[in-house]
Design a protein around this nucleic acid. Sequence first.
DNA 1: AGCTTATTAATTGTATACAATATCATATAT
DNA 2: ATATATGATATTGTATACAATTAATAAGCT
Lengths: 213, 213
Amino acid sequence: MVPLADPTYSRVREKLREDIVSGYFSGGTRLKIAELVNRYGVSQMPIREALQQLQGEGLIVIEPNKGAHVRQIDQSFLENMYDIRQLIEVYLTVRSLRNFQPRDIKELETLHSKYVKAANKSDFNQCLTLNKQFHSVIYKLADNPEGQQILEKHWQLINTLRLTFGYSTERIQKVILEHQDIITAIKDNDPIALEMAAKNHCINAKMDLILKL
Amino acid sequence: MVPLADPTYSRVREKLREDIVSGYFSGGTRLKIAELVNRYGVSQMPIREALQQLQGEGLIVIEPNKGAHVRQIDQSFLENMYDIRQLIEVYLTVRSLRNFQPRDIKELETLHSKYVKAANKSDFNQCLTLNKQFHSVIYKLADNPEGQQILEKHWQLINTLRLTFGYSTERIQKVILEHQDIITAIKDNDPIALEMAAKNHCINAKMDLILKL
DNA sequence: AGCTTATTAATTGTATACAATATCATATAT
DNA sequence: ATATATGATATTGTATACAATTAATAAGCT
């Protein structure tokens, strides 16, 4: 069975997330359903579901019987998110170490070399995808779906931010080095080095993104 | 304006969370909308919104165009959740220290003494409420709404688990001591002691809850 | 028999109409 | 004049009907 078109509420969720990140709906804006019905050309119901999902991502706040408001996506917001993200990402990465098998390391290296190739072609979108796959391999081995789910939600936002504000060549080159450090620490089975590498990777990502705002 | 009745989707969300925690809908169960319509006596729409919200809490997984499945709420699930929770809770608690004012400490002590009174009356529900208020004072001062939101979501589940499986007198007595340790560390402005106290508090809560399953 | 392809049934998703609630403006009383 | 109550309007929430998709079943082919 081939993958079919996403349901309307998924498409609306993606569109609305873009509209929030791009600033079309800026922080504090009241999102009226009728307005969104007009903008996206669909009925209320898929919009209401998309709003619930975006509330789950922390992008909006819904007050029952009142309405939905857009969260402020500013430096403070990203700092807070990345501080939490760092805690979880470092924890999961270190945790994954015990479950790494040779074939997992191989997979990581394959994805890494693909990343380098995509970087050389300046294919930023491909880099984004490969970056996610790279970390997904690690997260899976951490064997903590609850933590992973939080990181996945963050990633939805980060991905949209990157697509909106771009990905500098310098940052991509640094990512290559940082991923290399992570791979080395895993091969060395060195949890301390891995913790440092994961932490460093997260901090740099945060700084780079905040500077783009 | 007085607080009015919750919307239907909120009530359904609460009911369904209870039904999942109690095991009426056990892990892996497919949740069909028609079935839920019958069980809760409301139409599809509020049920669909409740499902989205519970997916946000991590209690169910929705596959677009396929359906919703109940997550397994077992020891592994709670361990994973509490491991993540511990990271965030400890971080936020230590972080709050810099913002604590005398009146905040006073508020904490007031809530604590109320907790002791409720404990002496064996009013467990009141203990649950006061416990949440106690920690909310701290979370607010940590000034990281993103982290706080994750803890709040966890709390929805923990609260339901406690209401379902109960709260032992022994645990309540230990909570009193653990909260006392936290207050002392805050008064001493001692981040190391506070980190220890928060960590300890979280670990004990996890162990106690897991033993109730 | 085993596999593919139609056909039917079950289930999820969407649109629309209507009900409940909240918001805003206006009038009224003190 | 300020505050309070009253009514009109806008907005959110719910129910129902229908469309789209998936899953299950049966038919046909090699």
